[in-house]
Design a protein around this nucleic acid. Structure first.
Lengths: 338, 338
DNA sequence: CACAGGATTGCAAACGGTTGCAGACTCGCT
DNA sequence: AGCGAGTCTGCAACCGTTTGCAATCCTGTG
């Protein structure tokens, strides 16, 4: 069907080797022959078969990207970043969605591994040992997860939490509730740590409301407990959860931010659109995808892995103050009205 | 690095051909040899190199999926459907995001075409001729777009619009505004047609507010014109636009649905979460992805293309009545209070 | 005991490229 | 004219599979 290198060779009246060279190492072949070859290739609409090249060079020119759930708006952002950067480097991207299933994840990764030069694993759900094993014989870059000895790009959870707490403290909040994500979530654990540290530094009280699904429904489920905690502000595991909180609070007639302030994390598109618009810590999701690609590509190219292994890119979040945070409800501690 | 078929052969003490046969055409090789081969393959963690197989069979076992913009929540849904179905059939998916750029789209498609057995083009922005040209020498399935002679899965826009209008008419609305999508959008054009037909049948007035970007911002931009049109209800090109409308209307102090009813199309996750929750026409997006895969795979397998070419799957939408629609503001035409 | 015929298995070619090596030409010089 | 040094180009091998064909072994039968 499609033209092969030999078709081009025949048309140009040269050997296949010459065509190969004319196309991929110009300069080593005579200018006039090269022109002839290029004309022939053009005429036949020839494009080299990447698979065949891959057989020899051992490079497929493809990378794999694995995400837990595309329905969570966090991931499409990362995917977009990966996409864009991969295109710049002329590598194609295999995408796999694991549906939040750790077992399926490992299976998909193994299947993909043979077809790509490297893998980007975004917020992987598999446990640390499995990830380490996979990274042992494949080029892997982790996003939003840290595993000893595996290159990764992560977000500065501690710093983000610090900004959120500083903001709330400035508004007079002294008792803040934390609605955590899934028990096994790496980022939930780290956000929690950052939160406690920041709360301690500011001398305010942090109350842990528990673990919830990282979804709108999870937020709705957490709302009543957050209210019952007596806190004047809530920090949610992510924006989806925060928006769920907002919904349930509204249903209960609790006004945000007058009665309770709410802070999310991620800054998904939806957050600007919620009512009230959500104050949140913006994570450079797309950028994370871009950096992951750079890291992975460097890793693939570099014959000496020591320069890369263990490399970590840490991206900083930025607090986006919108309408879901305000002065603490308890006016006795309101700094603006002593 | 990875084990090859010869490594397995050596370990099992047979020839490479036998390994190949043992693995892909069991039954033709002796049971005990087969067991030995399988054991060896297992031990070495052998997995055939898909690229090499592809060279011979002419099948890569991969399909490509092209979408305009992953940031639009509509697309991740269909990607998820494609993903899931592809996994069932053991084919991997290349994903490309064109960033709404028709030119980039064609380039990406051409590049991908060499590496896959077929392509799924979701809401392609390229013009009809280009698509027809591409479909001429590649297996292509369109989603949410129709081009003469190219298999496609689309949504029943007319039917969906009919449901929306019937709902609004029942609520007493007699003058309905239509906020269209981009001028060149295929689905916008078809929704518009369905809307006019339905409005005509019900004897109500439809006023076209114009074309807007298919985004939250587009909705905000359209809101004031929709209000000025004097209509008591608005149908928006999609949910994102509808949610933008909601935001601007709220900012202007116009109450939905008391002052104005709003209907969206798509039913993205965000729509349940908006305030008020959006009445919308649910489109089975994920299902569309699944069907597209089935269609494409059938197309790839079928030696006689005539049975597939021109095949069309039409998916029906379902009106989800939520809180953004209510009785028409103009009480003189309120059927419940004569 | 010779032989037909089925069941297994190995050999070698092919898929579409890349690349080391050596041969063929062209020049420029002596 | 002879020769050395480049410069180009073709030959052939190779990458990891699949598959047509032929060789081998077995079994049953006349």
């Amino acid at each position: 069907m499609a033209a092969t290198i030999r078709d081009v060779a025949r048309l140009a009246g040269v050997s296949a080797s010459t065509v190969s060279r004319a196309l991929s190492m110009p300069g080593v072949v005579n200018a006039t022959t090269r022109a002839r070859v290029q004309a022939a290739a053009e005429q036949l609409g020839y494009a080299p078969n990447k698979a065949a090249r891959g057989l020899i060079t051992g490079r497929t020119g493809n990378i794999g990207l694995v995400v837990p759930d595309l329905a969570n708006p966090f991931f499409p952002s990362v995917v977009k970043g990966v996409q864009a950067r991969a295109r710049m480097h002329d590598v194609a991207v295999f995408l796999a969605d694991t549906d939040e299933d750790a077992a399926a994840e490992v299976g998909l990764v193994l299947a993909l591994a043979k077809q790509v030069d490297g893998l980007i694993l975004c917020s992987p759900r598999a446990d640390e040992d499995e990830l380490a094993a996979i990274a042992a014989d494949t080029n892997v870059v982790l996003v939003n997860r840290l595993v000893e000895g595996v290159p990764a790009v992560t977000f500065d959870n501690e710093g983000g939490m610090r900004q959120a707490i500083a903001h709330l403290v400035a508004l007079g909040h002294r008792k803040i509730a934390w609605v955590g994500g899934p028990k096994t979530s790496w980022s939930s654990a780290h956000r929690s740590i950052g939160l406690y540290a920041a709360a301690h530094d500011h001398g305010v009280k942090l109350v842990d409301v528990g673990h919830f699904a990282p979804t709108y429904e999870g937020g709705m489920a957490a709302a009543d407990q957050a209210v019952a905690s007596g806190a004047t502000a809530v920090v949610a595991y992510n924006d989806l959860v925060a928006i769920g909180l907002l919904a349930r609070l509204h249903a209960r007639g609790i006004t945000v931010p007058d009665d309770l302030s709410v802070v999310g994390i991620d800054d998904i598109a939806m957050s600007r659109m919620s009512r009230p618009a959500l104050t949140t810590v913006r994570l450079p999701k797309q950028r994370a995808g871009e950096i992951a690609v750079e890291l992975l590509l460097a890793m693939i190219d570099d014959p000496d892995p020591d320069t890369i292994i263990g490399t970590r890119g840490t991206l900083h979040g930025e607090l986006m103050v919108r309408d879901s945070t305000g002065l603490a409800a308890d006016r006795t501690s309101d700094p603006a009205r002593p």
